[in-house]
């Protein structure tokens, strides 16, 4: 009887560990917040700048490059950027709060002048429920 109970407990313990080995990441994803990420789009625009010197108005037209991100991604000039953290045996993704400088809107997008790179992955909707350095599951 004792050996039977021990066999059962052993099978249960190692069976659960085996299931955990195969499915723990999928189970972890079920408890994480899912976010959609977008890549900033480069956008070039001709900008006219004027200034006055000695009573005369001078104009210059320059071509400036902005990065466009959805309007909903920005709040109080802050955005969430997705980063991959490499650890032994795997990797996971976290969101980090980042400050940006904007230069107005164009349609549904915001023009970002500073604080963002083209290869950054931005969370498309700024959510109050997200926290800085929180582990998330990204959907692209």
């Amino acid at each position: 009887m004792r050996k039977k109970v021990l066999c059962l407990l052993t099978a249960l313990f190692f069976g659960l560990l085996l299931l955990g080995t195969l499915f723990h990441q999928k189970i972890d994803c079920m408890f994480r917040e899912h976010v959609t990420v977008v890549n900033p789009k480069p956008h070039q625009e001709k900008v006219t700048k004027t200034w006055e010197k000695n009573g005369e108005e001078h104009r210059i037209i320059t071509e400036e490059t902005f990065l466009l991100i959805p309007k909903e991604a920005v709040q109080y000039n802050m955005i969430y950027v997705l980063e991959t953290v490499e650890v032994p045996y795997g990797s996971y993704e976290v969101v980090r709060l980042k400050g940006v400088e904007t230069a107005g809107e164009t349609g549904d997008y915001v023009k970002v002048t500073r604080g963002l790179k083209e290869k950054d992955r931005v969370v498309d909707v700024f959510s109050e429920s997200l926290e800085n350095e929180e582990r998330v599951v990204a959907e692209e």
């Binding site: 080995t21 723990h24 972890d28 032994p88 045996y89």
Partner: peptide, 13 residues
Amino acid sequence: VLVEEFWFYPKFW
């Protein structure tokens, strides 16, 4: 340990 961390199962086996 059993769900979130990556190191437990490889190290255990």
